[in-house]
């Protein structure tokens, strides 16, 4: 039996976080992941939990400009950070991000569960400049699993936006 586990709760810690442009001052248990904080704490359920082990990419968010698996980030370790989730991709007036538009046009999803992660990865990928060729996009998107098998359509969507923006 594991003797090192004891029946007591975790410490809490103060944290300030800007999520999709809104700043939050929070007190959270130290064991809270960024994903669980977003979903259960802030009610931003767009980011999805697919594995909780950084294996599927469904929880991908853009953290200080970089895409990360939010299930692997302890929220307490990112005090003062800026987070962009799928809910923050469209403009405040509701106009969709070009990649969101392209996903709809190219039918780049079926069940939609991996879609928030695919979109956040794709948006960050465009900004990182890793969309020069089809092969490059496939390689750099391979951390985002899609069980429905929408891969060819996701590729088409990212490629279209990359070409329009002169990034392909």
């Amino acid at each position: 039996m594991p003797d090192d586990l004891s029946p007591r709760g975790p410490e809490t810690v103060a944290l300030s976080l800007t999520v999709n442009g809104t700043s939050h001052s929070l007190h959270i248990p130290v064991w809270t992941t960024l994903l669980d904080l977003l979903r259960e704490g802030l009610g931003l359920t767009g980011s999805k939990k697919g594995c909780d082990h950084g294996q599927c990419g469904a929880c991908t968010v853009i953290l200080d400009g970089k895409r990360v698996n939010s299930c692997l980030v302890l929220a307490a370790s990112r005090d003062g950070s800026e987070v962009r989730t799928v809910e923050g991709l469209a403009s405040p007036d509701g106009a969709l991000h070009p990649l969101q538009e392209a996903f709809i046009k190219h039918d780049a999803f079926q069940c939609g569960y991996c879609t928030p992660g695919q979109l956040c990865s794709g948006v960050a990928l465009l900004e990182e400049g890793h969309t020069r060729t089809e092969e490059e996009i496939r390689e750099w998107m391979s951390g985002n699993l899609c069980r429905c098998g929408a891969y060819p359509n996701i590729l088409a969507a990212i490629l279209e936006v990359a070409r329009k923006e002169g990034r392909a």
């Binding site: 359920t45 767009g46 991709l89 969101q100 996903f103 709809i104 039918d107 939609g112 879609t115």
Partner: peptide, 23 residues
């Protein structure tokens, strides 16, 4: 035809089982 639930799915508005009743 584009999916009629497309917008909900690309904005994170589509609610799956675990998305209900947070808090």
């Amino acid at each position: 035809q584009d999916r009629v639930d497309g917008r909900a799915k690309v904005t994170g508005a589509a609610r799956y089982v675990a998305d209900f009743e947070t808090g």
